Amino acid sequence: MIVFVRFNSSHGFPVEVDSDTSIFQLKEVVAKRQGVPADQLRVIFAGKELRNDWTVQNCDLDQQSIVHIVQRPWRKGQEMNATGGDDPRNAAGGCEREPQSLTRVDLSSSVLPGDSVGLAVILHTDSRKDSPPAGSPAGRSIYNSFYVYCKGPCQRVQPGKLRVQCSTCRQATLTLTQGPSCWDDVLIPNRMSGECQSPHCPGTSAEFFFKCGAHPTSDKETSVALHLIATNSRNITCITCTDVRSPVLVFQCNSRHVICLDCFHLYCVTRLNDRQFVHDPQLGYSLPCVAGCPNSLIKELHHFRILGEEQYNRYQQYGAEECVLQMGGVLCPRPGCGAGLLPEPDQRKVTCEGGNGLGCGFAFCRECKEAYHEGECSAVFEASGTTTQAYRVDERAAEQARWEAASKETIKKTTKPCPRCHVPVEKNGGCMHMKCPQPQCRLEWCWNCGCEWNRVCMGDHWFDV
């Protein structure tokens, strides 16, 4: 396979590697080409510095992935760790964990309700045991953590790749202090920090972006993250068709209702045909949960890209028209025109101005929308079919299609509260000796007794199943 190397943020060049090629071997190839010592090179990928003893497969490097290699003399205490030698983080029983690669970060837990604080980093599902597709590297999971809308060759929703760059020099040479644990960490600028490894760059702020994971991409090709779309790892039924499908869209209502993408497309087109989208002054033209839940309008309007190009163009047109109407304007009634106009409040005669090729020149009556006339309008008909009709959803289907309910059931079956801080902690095999993952707590306690870890627990039921 081919990976592209950008040395000291210059133009990239291809390097041929195998899945079992080590990072140090990659350094040696680059060092020979650039005429520099291999031990002064640092390989940066997806916000993480890659260790010498890791392989291309370990690092989730795919065909035509772009890695950054910078030349920086080692500072005291760094060289041993980078070589894969006596790194205290690798000691058996050590409590410190390697910062998780962005290629394996899962933010789907952050669609849980606000009262489930902490689960994004504490609760991990076991539903990723799908067998890898044919042709994928051994052991590589097909679980997708992110979804994007690819405006490039795909023109559809695709699995996405999370990447990070330095907000100062805009190069992907920043190593994160810690990985993101929720969508806010990724979507809110300057929320996460790190250290830029580019020479002479003092940058410390992280800037995240997404790429389409279905095809090789260049540095400049980015895609918009659709953070309401998630892999259906909890096997929730769709609120409309009641099938279990994946991926799904999880509405931001209190129940976190789930809808499959085909039904979401149908829901949007139906509402669009009836012009029953909601115009929100802050958000724009949007839709609420299909069950009509309060405070559930979709905030990231790129989710409506699921409509496809033709329907999305209609959505944008109707949204612009609705904006004009909300501002007190009118639409030209001549067939084939429909231009938005903003006449004076007491102006009865409205002319669709033909300047700049935008208007048709038609003069019409503001009251009856017919060709302009003197005197009273002959008839004014009330528009028919403008009443909002509820999208029919079966109550039982709505009850079963809740992301929140599956989460709470998982928590109930696989977790116990920490005796000190009461945060839910998952036990997935292993011994009875637990350690609270909350940095402010870190209590060592017994899963069996529910009390602080002691010699009695150690001698009596340390390794009970």
Rank of each mutant, 00 (worst) to 15 (best):
Q252F: 03
L325D: 04
G450N: 02
G160N: 01
V465M: 15
D20K: 08
T204V: 08
C337P: 03
F362T: 07
S116D: 15
I306T: 05
H215S: 02
G203Q: 03
L307A: 11
G430A: 15
K416A: 07
A138P: 12
A120H: 12
D219E: 11
P137M: 12
C323A: 15
C289R: 00
P424Q: 10
L261E: 03
S65V: 03
F146A: 03
R392S: 09
K427D: 15
M434T: 15
G84M: 12
H265E: 12
F13V: 05
S127K: 12
W403H: 03
F463L: 02
Q63A: 12
D130C: 10
F463S: 00
E16Q: 10
R97F: 11
P199H: 07
I259T: 04
E367G: 07
C457L: 01
G355I: 11
G354P: 12
K427N: 15
Q316V: 11
P343D: 05
D184L: 06
G77Y: 12
L226H: 02
V269K: 03
P333Q: 03
H279N: 10
T222L: 08
C352P: 02
C421L: 01
R256A: 08
Q57D: 10
A92N: 13
Q197H: 11
K369Q: 09
A138N: 11
P153A: 10
R89E: 15
L266T: 13
W54V: 07
C169V: 00
A401L: 02
E16A: 06
L331K: 04
G308W: 03
D53S: 09
C154G: 00
R402K: 13
W453M: 15
V5G: 02
M434Y: 05
K76I: 15
V121W: 14
N295L: 05
A92S: 13
G319Y: 07
E28L: 05
R140K: 12
D39Y: 04
R271T: 07
C457N: 00
C436A: 02
T237C: 10
V425A: 15
Q282I: 12
S116A: 14
S223E: 09
G329T: 03
R455E: 15
V248Y: 00
L261T: 06
Q100L: 11
A172C: 10
E367Y: 08
P133C: 10
Y318R: 02
A138Y: 11
A138W: 10
A390Q: 14
R420A: 13
P88C: 09
